[in-house]
Design a protein around this nucleic acid. Sequence first.
DNA 1: ACCCTTTAGTAAATCGATTCTCTTCCCGTT
DNA 2: AACGGGAAGAGAATCGATTTACTAAAGGGT
Lengths: 354, 354
Amino acid sequence: MSRKKTARSEDFPAPDPEQPVNLKSLAEFLGLAPATISLVMNRSPASRSIPKRTKDRILAEAKRLNYRPNFLARSLRHQRSFTIGVVVPEVSEGYAAMVMSGIEDDLLREGYFYFVVSHRHRADLIEEYPKILLERAVEGIIAVDTPCERALPVPIVSVSGHREVEGVTNIVLDHSLAARLALQHLFQLGHRKIAFIKGQAFSSDTESRWRAIHEAAGELGLCVNPKLTARLEGDSSSPALGYEVTKQLLNAGDDFTALFAFNDVSAIGAMRAIRDAGRTIPGDISVVGFDDIQSAAFQSPGLTTVRQPLRRMGEIAAQTLLQRIDQSKNGRPPKSITVEPELIIRESTAAASR
Amino acid sequence: MSRKKTARSEDFPAPDPEQPVNLKSLAEFLGLAPATISLVMNRSPASRSIPKRTKDRILAEAKRLNYRPNFLARSLRHQRSFTIGVVVPEVSEGYAAMVMSGIEDDLLREGYFYFVVSHRHRADLIEEYPKILLERAVEGIIAVDTPCERALPVPIVSVSGHREVEGVTNIVLDHSLAARLALQHLFQLGHRKIAFIKGQAFSSDTESRWRAIHEAAGELGLCVNPKLTARLEGDSSSPALGYEVTKQLLNAGDDFTALFAFNDVSAIGAMRAIRDAGRTIPGDISVVGFDDIQSAAFQSPGLTTVRQPLRRMGEIAAQTLLQRIDQSKNGRPPKSITVEPELIIRESTAAASR
DNA sequence: ACCCTTTAGTAAATCGATTCTCTTCCCGTT
DNA sequence: AACGGGAAGAGAATCGATTTACTAAAGGGT
């Protein structure tokens, strides 16, 4: 029992240089049982009876040998992976990147890590990735601008999700307010003939945003002219899409003094198209975007836009998910959390000329 | 032995609805030993002796009950996590997002997932994160624009890393070519008085890019005027930084007809500053950026810039890392891999007026 | 009838840590 | 002298899958 105790640290200063120390080797080295060390290292109440001398010896030696408990073993034992999955359409798209940036902070602070997967709007991947993440033992999933149809055995938080699905908490923008902010702004500037660019069908926000626009227009006594309405086509995230539809709008004949685009990227394309057609912004046509991506502020003229608090939405998503993981099954989770948009007025909007 | 075999699938269609099936329960259900099932499921050569009838029965039942081997248990056994870590300065920065987007494809195809952590240039986090990732049992690390000082027990690939560190493979841009492309372009347009915006000290590219500029200038017989040289300060990634230093350059008195910025973000700020000073682009001053972020093409005038193949760099990083993981220790890994930049000429550059 | 080879699997160790249940040993009481 | 009880720590089961070594029965050849 005491023969091993003579193996003091000074005798074997550097142990096996190859293999990282594990509990067993540390135990052998200390002449103690793995169980004892585990209890002490985890400050378990059961280590009450271990004298401070021994505790200190264990702690000191663990630190000296740089012992790190094997995460996988621990996870297996506790049935907890401290990992969540984040599903996005495309990492490099700005929208998703911004949300992810908000997600990270809270997660890491609580000791969680996250896997990222991007599906690029491929239906099979949208279906498959959540399952693969589950196999990877994630404890929850955050879906960004990605439809989740089926209930899963882990909590899900969907950023910009609109469908009501069992087990899914939606983080949504107040689209009514967003539409009102934008249209009121244009209305007050005297705009009555307003063109619209709708989003692609796959974007979760498209429908509710469009409904909100109709409502807000109704409240203001504006009419939404179908001839002044275009829809983005194609899944690229380049302003070229906005450029194309705006050219069509301009050529279609019906006059307009303002354009409300589905997002900033298409608004930027629209601005080009408008200028290419020989019109000025905001002199001839005012333009309002949506999202407030970084490029919006970098345009000239600076793009007036409805800001979505994307980073904040990421933070809320992470917090909500962690809460739900913590008290799993404890009470019904909130169905949805609404965040408020903000109108950022820059130089792309001005009083209507006609 | 055969009493269990009578438990045909039709008798118990839906097993325990709560608990996910594990190997043991599946084995019990089939009246076989876990070992047998494992061998068959993994198509191990040792399953040679199992008759096809039994194999089919196992496979069918596994599928019906939706059995998925527990990833953690498997990882523990094999000492493989199929996970790598990606360290970036900031997820939402475009540069990192683009590289990540390239990383993802190859990784997922090979069954790997990745953790993302962002350090926001905090020295303690840069030091700490790789260690935490190691605790999480990652099999390799990709560092994007992040210095890695010390050798780690796993392969590391550094995108835009320049230091030679044991165990680190650098993916670097050919900065000499980049500088030559930009300066030759400006030179051919007749520019002789060129201003420069250097990068922040923390950016890994700053030094080598600056050396390359000196070299290229030398080759062309241009001189780099210290009075026409500014350096970005502060770690925000807003064009405001570029705006500030450009204002100083313009006020400093020394005349210039072209500006070569450290990156597109600062170039965009610079363009604003130039216009605010009453000069035109490219009439009075030509501007060249670096990176070719999405916003570069969206500017007006469109920003001429040196494109880094960021997505490609991500792909190469992932491929290289996977190779190194695969044949660990097998031969010395490449010290560095160079990729080539491309000059994207848009409207922000034109012939020098004076 | 005996031995050898397949066939059809199974038992048990292992990966590394956790945790509940036991032993001892020793000290102080009655 | 016997007993209770706390101190100090050891043992063993467990998480779920993998894998090597082994067994038991059946078939085939001489």
